[in-house]
Design a protein around this nucleic acid. Structure first.
Length: 580
RNA sequence: GGCGGCGUAGCUCAGCUGGUUAGAGCGUGGGAUUCAUAAAUCCAAGGUCCCCGGUUCGAGUCCGGGCGCCGCUACCA
C-alpha cells in the first residue's frame, strides 16, 4: 500500500468571485475526502489547487469594480483560500496563475509546454477576423459582444448565443454589435492565432479514452458521464483545431519569436491546467526539493494524477488537457513514458448543484439572481463538518441535486446528530458514569459481540472500497450504517440494564462500543476531519489514529478517555430560517 | 438538430457485468426501552421500477421505439 503515489488536483477556481456551496460540492469536498482517505491508507499524496487568474473575465470584473486586475485576483485568491481553510479543505499548496509568488514559475511551465508542442508541429498558425474594442484596446470574445439577434431580432443577443431565441450566433452576424466591456461600437480587425491540432491527436485521444472504459484494465473507475460525453462528442463531431492563444495582455505571453505573437497571451484554458503542474513545482521548491522535483509527480508512470472538477470542465480535462500532454510526448506511449507528462489516471466530475429555497422551486445557483449560498456566510453560522456531511450525502454524482437548507438542517439533526453523534455520546457518558472514564475489561465475548466486531471490520473494507472508486456518497453511507449498527448493538446488549445485575456483561458491551467508536473515528475522518479529530481527542487516541490499517486496533481495557462532549450541534430550524 | 445524463416507495436517492419475496435514509403508524443532544432500537404500511415492443428459462438491469426533465454543443471560465 505504501508504494502508491498520487497527485490530486481540484479545479482552479476563477479569481473574480467568491465560492458558493455549488463549487464546494462539485470538486473540493470530494477531492479533499479522497486525499484524506489516500493518506490514511499510507499513500504518498500531493494535493494541488490555486486560483485561475488569467483571461478576459477577470479584466471585465476588475473594470466593473474599479480595481486593477492584480488587486482583484489577489483579493479573491485570498477569499477563496479562507473559505477552503474554513471548510477543512487542506491543499498542500494554494497557488494562483497570476499571483506574485507563482506567476513567474507558472509562465515558465506554460511557455515551456507551448514551445514543446510548437516544436512538435502541433500548432497551426492562422488568421481570422474578429471584433475589436478600440476604447478597451482589445479584441472581444464572442460573449463580450452584445447586439440584435439576426434570427429573432431580440436585443438580448450575445456573440455566441441569443438569450431571446436560444439560437447559436456567429459573432460577426450580430446586428449593431456593442462591446460589453465599454459599450462602444467595435470594429472588425484581422488577427493571428495558434491552433492546437486536435484533429491530428484525435486517434490517440480516442484510444486513450476508450482504454478508460474498463476499470480492471486502467485501474480507475471513470464515471460514465465523463467518458460518454467526451467520446460521444468526438464520435459525433470529430475534433477540429482550436485556438490556444488570445489577443490579451493579461495572461501568459505567447513565447514565440514571431512578430505576430506580440501582445498575445495563451488561452486561459491552455495555461490553467498547467497551473496544476507549476504549483506542484512551487510546492517542491518550498519543500526544499527544488522546482524540478515536479517531474517526480508528473513524469513518473507510478504516480497517478487525478483531477476533480465540475461538469463544466469535462471537455477540457478529458479532451483538451490530455491532448496538450499527448502533444508534448516524444514516445507513442498513450499514458506517457517515464520522463514524459503522464495523462490523467482519472477525471472525477460531479454535476452542478441546484438550490432550493423554502416555498420555491428548485433553481440554478446564480450570482446575479442572488441565489448563491456563499461559503463565507455559511461559516459565520455553521460549523464546516455539517456542510461537508450534507454536500457529500447529496453529492450530484450522477445527476443534478439541490441544496436545500431545510434538508440540510434535517439531515444534520436526524442523521449526523441522532445516529452518529448520539452513539458517541451515549458510549462516552456511560463510561464516565459507570466505569470511571476508562475502557472496561473485554470479558469473555459472546457471538453477538464478535459478530458486531466483524461488522466493524467489514465497514472498514466496504468504506475503503467505495472511496477507492470515488463513490463518496456510498462511502459515507457505510460509515453511517456502522454508526447505526453501533446503536443497534448498544440496544441489544442493554448495558443500561446489566449494570444493575452483571457488571461483567455491562463492561463487555461498553468495551465493544468503544471499539466501534474507535473504528468510526478513523472511517469518518476523510469526510468530517474536524469531528474525527474531536473523536480522537475524546477517545484519547495515539497519533496514528487516522491510519486505515489501524481502524480496528482495539483500545486496551483501562485506557482512559477524555471528557464527553457534544460532537455535533443540533440545529434549530427556526433560528436557521430567521437567518436566511 | 447532434451528443450525453436522468426518469425506482409520500420525499431524497442506491441498485456493478440480467437471476430467489425490488433496497437505504427521511417522513408516517405501532411495539418495546431508558445509557444518550426527548436521541436510539425493533416492526409495519407504502412501488404498474416513465410508456410500448423485443431478446431471454428469467429484465429495474440488455436492444429498438416513444414521452418527460436537464446538461453540453468549445474561442466566458
Amino acid at each position: 500500500m505504501t508504494d502508491r503515489k498520487f497527485l490530486i488536483t481540484a479545479a482552479l477556481p476563477y479569481s473574480n468571485g467568491r465560492l458558493h456551496v455549488g463549487h464546494i460540492a462539485g470538486a473540493y469536498v470530494p477531492a479533499d475526502t479522497y486525499v484524506r482517505y489516500l493518506r490514511a491508507t499510507g499513500a504518498e499524496v500531493r494535493f494541488i489547487c490555486g486560483s485561475d487568474d488569467n483571461g478576459v473575465a477577470a479584466l471585465k470584473t476588475a473594470r466593473e469594480q474599479g480595481k486593477s486586475v492584480e488587486e482583484l485576483t489577489a483579493h479573491f485568491n485570498a477569499c477563496q483560500k479562507r473559505d477552503f481553510d474554513g471548510l477543512g479543505i487542506e491543499f498542500d499548496i494554494y497557488g494562483g496563475t497570476h499571483q506574485p509568488d507563482y506567476v513567474k514559475t507558472h509562465e515558465k511551465f506554460s511557455q515551456d509546454l507551448f514551445r514543446k508542442i510548437h516544436e512538435k508541429g502541433l500548432f497551426t498558425k492562422r488568421s481570422t477576423k474578429q471584433l475589436y474594442d478600440t476604447q478597451a484596446d482589445q479584441f472581444l470574445p464572442d460573449r463580450y459582444v452584445k447586439g440584435t439577434c439576426p434570427h429573432c431580432s431580440s436585443d438580448n443577443a450575445f456573440g455566441d448565443q441569443c438569450e431571446g431565441c436560444g439560437r447559436a450566433i456567429d459573432q460577426l452576424s450580430l446586428v449593431n454589435p456593442i462591446s460589453v466591456m465599454t459599450g462602444s461600437k467595435p470594429e472588425l480587425r484581422e488577427t493571428v492565432h495558434w491552433y492546437l491540432r486536435l484533429d491530428a491527436l484525435q486517434g490517440k485521444l480516442t484510444e486513450w479514452l476508450a482504454s478508460k472504459k474498463d476499470a480492471t484494465v486502467c485501474g480507475a473507475q471513470w464515471r460514465p458521464t465523463v467518458l460518454n460525453q467526451s467520446l460521444g462528442r468526438i464520435e459525433a463531431e470529430g475534433l477540429p483545431e482550436r485556438a490556444m492563444t488570445r489577443d490579451l495582455t493579461w495572461g501568459v505571453p505567447v513565447p514565440l519569436d514571431d512578430p505576430d505573437a506580440e501582445g498575445k497571451s495563451l488561452y486561459v484554458w491552455f495555461d490553467a491546467p498547467i497551473g496544476y503542474v507549476s504549483f506542484t513545482g512551487a510546492l517542491c521548491e518550498k519543500n526544499g526539493e527544488g522546482i524540478e522535483a515536479y517531474s517526480n509527480w508528473w513524469k513518473d508512470p507510478e504516480c497517478k494524477v487525478v483531477h476533480f472538477i465540475g461538469e463544466d470542465n469535462i471537455v477540457f480535462h478529458a479532451i483538451t488537457w490530455p491532448a496538450m500532454l499527448l502533444a508534448s510526448h516524444d514516445s507513442d506511449d498513450l499514458q506517457g513514458a517515464t520522463g514524459e507528462y503522464q495523462l490523467p489516471h482519472n477525471v472525477v466530475s460531479n454535476s452542478f448543484l441546484n438550490i432550493k429555497f423554502p416555498g420555491k422551486d428548485e433553481e440554478k445557483i446564480s450570482k446575479s439572481r442572488g441565489t448563491a449560498v456563499w461559503i463565507e456566510d455559511f461559516l459565520k453560522t455553521f460549523d464546516p463538518d455539517p456542510l461537508r456531511y450534507y454536500l457529500t450525502s447529496i453529492a450530484p454524482e450522477s445527476a443534478r441535486t439541490a441544496f436545500d437548507i431545510d434538508d440540510f438542517v434535517n439531515r444534520n439533526n436526524t442523521e449526523l446528530v441522532n445516529a452518529f453523534g448520539n452513539f458517541f455520546n451515549r458510549t462516552m457518558t456511560f463510561a464516565h458514569k459507570y466505569f470511571d472514564g476508562k475502557i472496561p475489561a473485554v470479558g469473555s465475548r459472546d457471538d453477538v459481540d464478535n459478530e458486531h466486531l466483524v461488522r466493524c471490520q467489514q465497514a472498514v473494507e466496504k468504506t475503503g472500497t467505495e472511496l477507492d472508486a470515488c463513490h463518496f456518497k456510498a462511502g459515507l453511507g457505510e460509515v453511517m450504517a456502522l454508526a447505526r449498527a453501533g446503536n443497534g448493538y448498544f440496544d441489544v446488549t442493554k448495558p443500561f440494564l446489566s449494570r444493575k445485575t452483571d457488571m461483567e456483561a455491562c463492561g463487555r458491551a461498553i468495551n465493544v462500543c468503544f471499539q466501534t467508536a474507535r473504528t468510526l473515528t478513523t472511517l469518518v475522518a476523510p469526510f468530517l476531519p474536524a469531528t474525527a479529530k474531536k473523536c480522537a481527542e475524546i477517545l484519547n487516541l495515539d497519533d496514528n489514529w487516522q491510519s486505515w490499517a489501524s481502524a480496528t486496533d482495539e483500545l486496551a481495557a483501562g485506557h482512559a478517555i477524555g471528557e464527553a462532549q457534544i460532537l455535533i450541534k443540533k440545529l434549530d430550524p427556526k433560528e436557521v430560517f430567521s437567518d436566511a
